[in-house]
C-alpha cells in the first residue's frame, strides 16, 4: 500500500493531475462591521452601550449571566451614581452573609453587587435550556475569535430554512456563522422587539450592533484608557529613541 502510494506520488509529479488547495475555514467569512471602538483612537459609543444594556436586560439576561460585570461599572455607560443605584435596586440578591438569626435573606442589589445571574448555578441553567449551557457573557467578545464581528454575525445570521440537504433537529436552529451551524439558541432578537426611547431604528441589525457594543465594553472595559495611554507611551518612546540615536551617533562619531 505504502509503496504504491509512493509510486503514484511520483507519477503525479510527471502527469500533474488537478491539484487543489483545500480550504481551511468552515462556513462563510464573517462580515466586518464598522465599529466606533476599532482603530488606535477608537472609543465606545455610550448611547449605543445604553441601548445594548437595555437589550441585554430585556432579552439576553433571561438566560445569560454576566457575573464579572458589576452595577458600579455602569458608570462607563454614562449613568450617574443615583441612576446606577436605582438600576441595581430593581434587582434582589441573596446576601452573602446570613442575618443575625443565621438565615440567608434577600435584599435589594447595590452598586457593589455583580449583575444578577438568571440561574442559581450551571446545572440549573442547563436544565432550563434543554441541556445546553448559555455561556456567561462578561467575556464573550474576548473569548471568541474576531469577537465583535462574530457575535454580530451570530445574532443576525439565523436562517429560517437550512440550506438544501441539511436538516436541523427540534430545539436547534440554523445559523450561518456558528461553527457547525446548528445552534441551540433560538433567534433571540427580531425587528421591533425592544423599544428605544431615543428614536434609533428598532431593527435587528441595530439591536445586534448595540448589544455587541455593550458586550465589547463588558469584555474590555479599559479599552479607551489602554489606547490613549498607549499613544502617549509610544510618542514618548519615539522621542526617547530619537534622542538616544543622536547620543549614540555622537559618541560613535569619533570611532575610526
Amino acid at each position: 500500500m505504502f509503496i504504491r502510494n509512493v509510486l503514484t506520488t511520483l507519477i503525479i509529479g510527471l502527469t500533474s493531475v488537478s491539484a487543489a488547495f483545500a480550504s481551511g475555514g468552515d462556513g462563510p467569512a464573517i462580515p466586518s462591521q464598522d465599529w466606533s471602538f476599532s482603530g488606535a483612537f477608537g472609543t465606545y459609543d455610550k448611547a449605543a452601550m445604553q441601548r445594548g444594556y437595555k437589550i441585554y436586560r430585556e432579552v439576553c439576561a433571561s438566560c445569560h449571566a454576566m457575573k464579572r460585570v458589576y452595577f458600579r461599572n455602569l458608570e462607563a455607560l454614562g449613568y450617574n451614581e443615583a441612576q446606577i443605584k436605582n438600576i441595581a435596586a430593581e434587582y434582589t440578591v441573596i446576601n452573602k452573609e446570613p442575618n443575625d438569626e443565621g438565615d440567608m435573606f434577600e435584599r435589594p442589589a447595590l452598586p457593589s453587587d455583580a449583575f444578577i445571574s438568571p440561574f442559581a448555578n450551571d446545572n440549573a441553567a442547563k436544565y432550563a435550556n434543554g441541556g445546553a449551557l448559555p455561556p456567561d457573557l462578561s467575556l464573550i467578545v474576548k473569548a471568541r475569535g474576531n469577537g465583535s464581528n462574530y457575535i454580530t454575525g451570530l445574532l443576525t445570521g439565523y436562517e429560517e430554512h437550512p440550506p438544501h440537504g441539511q436538516e436541523v433537529a427540534d430545539g436547534q436552529y440554523w445559523n450561518t456563522y456558528f461553527p457547525g451551524h446548528k445552534l441551540s439558541m433560538a433567534p433571540p432578537l427580531m425587528d421591533g422587539q425592544v423599544s428605544y426611547e431615543d428614536g434609533t431604528p428598532e431593527t435587528l441589525d441595530q439591536y445586534a450592533h448595540d448589544v455587541v457594543q455593550f458586550l465589547t465594553w463588558a469584555s474590555d472595559p479599559h479599552m479607551e484608557i489602554r489606547k490613549s495611554t498607549g499613544f502617549k507611551v509610544i510618542v514618548f518612546l519615539l522621542m526617547f529613541a530619537g534622542v538616544m540615536l543622536s547620543v549614540k551617533r555622537k559618541i560613535w562619531s569619533d570611532v575610526h
Binding site: 489606547k227 498607549g230 507611551v233 518612546l237 529613541a241 540615536l245 549614540k248
Partner: peptide, 19 residues
C-alpha cells in the same frame, strides 16, 4: 548607549502589542 537605543526601539514594538 547602543544597547540602550536598541532597547527603546524594541520597547516601541512591545508597547504596540501591549496597548
Amino acid at each position: 548607549m547602543k544597547d540602550f537605543f536598541g532597547m527603546i526601539v524594541f520597547m516601541i514594538l512591545y508597547a504596540w502589542f501591549v496597548f
